[in-house]
Computed example of a mutant assay.
Amino acid sequence: MNADSRPFPRLAPAAAPGSPLWRRLAVPAGLLTAVAAAFAYVGAVDPNEPGHYPVCPLYRLTGLYCPGCGGLRGAHAFVHGDLLTALRDNVLGVAAYLGFAVLWTVWVVHAVRGRPMRLDPRPAHLWGIGALVLVFTAVRNLPPGGWLHP
Rank of each mutant, 00 (worst) to 15 (best):
C66F: 05
R60A: 14
E49I: 15
C66K: 04
V108P: 12
W107I: 02
G30N: 04
A96G: 05
H110N: 05
H76F: 09
V94A: 12
F8V: 00
V35G: 03
N141K: 10
L21V: 13
R6K: 13
R140L: 01
N141A: 04
V106K: 11
V27S: 03
P9S: 10
L119A: 02
R122A: 15
L25T: 06
F8P: 01
L83Q: 07
T137D: 00
A95I: 08
L126Q: 01
P57C: 03
F136D: 01
G130H: 11
N48E: 14
P67Y: 02
Y53Q: 06
A124W: 12
V35L: 07
G130D: 04
G51H: 10
P150C: 11
P150S: 12
A75K: 01
L126I: 14
F39V: 08
A16P: 10
V55I: 12
G51F: 11
D82C: 04
P17Y: 09
R60N: 06
M117E: 04
L142W: 11
V102F: 15
A111G: 02
A38N: 11
R88A: 12
R23I: 08
G146H: 11
C56A: 08
L134R: 01
P67C: 00
G71Y: 01
A44G: 12
G68A: 05
A14C: 10
A15L: 02
H125F: 06
R113P: 00
P121M: 00
G43S: 12
F8N: 00
L98S: 13
G74I: 14
V27G: 00
P17K: 15
A86R: 02
C69T: 12
L98Q: 08
P9R: 14
V139S: 03
G71T: 02
A138T: 13
F100K: 07
T105Y: 15
L92P: 01
V102Y: 13
P143Y: 09
A40I: 04
A111Y: 03
W104E: 15
L126R: 05
L92F: 10
F78I: 04
R122L: 13
P9K: 06
L21H: 06
W104S: 15
H149F: 00
N141D: 09
R10V: 08
R88K: 12
A40P: 04
A124E: 14
L83R: 11
A40S: 15
R10F: 09
P54D: 03
A14L: 06
L72K: 14
L87T: 02
G70C: 10
L58E: 02
A40M: 09
D120T: 09
R60H: 12
A36V: 13
A95Y: 09
P20I: 03
D120Y: 08
A96K: 05
V139Q: 04
P7S: 06
G51L: 10
H149T: 06
D4F: 13
Y65K: 10
G51Q: 10
N90Y: 06
A26V: 00
D46F: 08
L72N: 15
Y59S: 03
R115E: 14
W104L: 15
F100E: 04
